[in-house]
Design a protein around this nucleic acid. Structure first.
Lengths: 178, 178
DNA sequence: AGAAGATACCTTGCTACCGAGGTATCAAAG
DNA sequence: CTTTGATACCTCGGTAGCAAGGTATCTTCT
């Protein structure tokens, strides 16, 4: 299910400008690759699948710099596909931080403040759900329940992160709604 | 490469106490499942592979509650495997937040402050590397370069997160070293 | 008594994913 | 003038991962 994120990133980057595969690969690497590197044995087959699905076209551009490049550009179907996926993202994009960040990177393309706000609200709902990393039966365990510094750090980092993001979400929603 | 995280979580949870598969599954779901649910078609085959590798044993316990359970317990090899993986985690555990959290959850089992500190230092090194989500050629782009609120949010959240974690890392390292 | 829901585990088939390896061009360094 | 390194893309084989479906027990609700 990496492809679902790579596909969104590909649609997102190509929405603005035509790119060849290698360039796309480097942009994706900057966006998500420091966390989780992607093999080109993953990306190139995906591009072929996307071409087969009618989302993009490839055009051979003989070697200007080095080896010949395949310049990629989105079809009308591809452009619509990006907007559809941004408007109603798979649940994974809401819960998984890496995918959520990928979505945020391109959400501006969805040129409709109400739809953008709806997506942010899904993330808000997710983050405000009660959750814990560890349970003692039905009881959620908190940082104070542990005497090891690493699990305490886990809670410290997680709560700080979500607090920052909640603040940003609420401010941005106020702007989008107002 | 999900299995590498599931395997660590399994070794980690079983290090303390014997569990049956379903219970283990629920603990893993609490730790990482809110972000990324795991299918039992993923977990059960992994447990079999781990058994085949000599990391754990299963013992059939006839139905006390419902269907008969397979109680899992680590072998000596399994206990050692946890310590080895904690001591020298794969790079993915250092860079990917989900995997890093999984590692933090069990790092206390590595009963050696110097080795624990060494792991934290790897994370510190990673977080202090210069990084950006977007590049304009060689130039890393910053929040101020974007006028869309979503990419700005991306930077806001990412920097706040890493600041909190860096503070915790430095404090904890000072404790471990001192 | 029957249905529903939780517990508990399993298999099968499709496909995505990754590592490993290969091909080729061009520039810069030695 | 050869090597190194970057650019640029590709294929193949093995395996992991997932959805979908199945089986069975026990409790609780109706």
């Amino acid at each position: 299910m990496i492809w679902i994120m790579l596909e969104l990133a590909t649609l997102g980057f190509l929405y603005d400008e035509r790119l060849h595969g290698y360039d796309l690969r480097k942009r994706i690497a900057a966006l998500t690759g420091h966390v989780r590197p992607i093999a080109d044995g993953t990306l190139y087959p995906l591009l072929k699948r996307m071409e087969a699905a009618g989302l993009l076209t490839r055009e051979l551009q003989p070697g200007q710099v080095a080896a010949p490049r395949h310049v990629l550009s989105l079809t009308a179907t591809g452009r619509q596909a990006l907007l559809d996926r941004l408007r109603e993202p798979d649940e994974l994009f809401v819960t998984d931080e890496n995918r959520w960040f990928t979505l945020l990177a391109f959400l501006r393309h969805l040129d409709d403040p109400a739809a953008q706000a709806a997506v942010l609200r899904r993330r808000l709902t997710f983050l405000t759900q009660p959750a814990s990393f560890f349970w003692d039966g039905d009881r959620p365990m908190r940082a104070a329940d542990f005497d090891d510094p690493f699990r305490q750090g886990l809670f410290t980092i997680a709560t700080a992160t979500s607090r920052t993001e909640l603040k940003w979400l609420r401010e941005t929603l106020a702007d989008l709604d107002g």
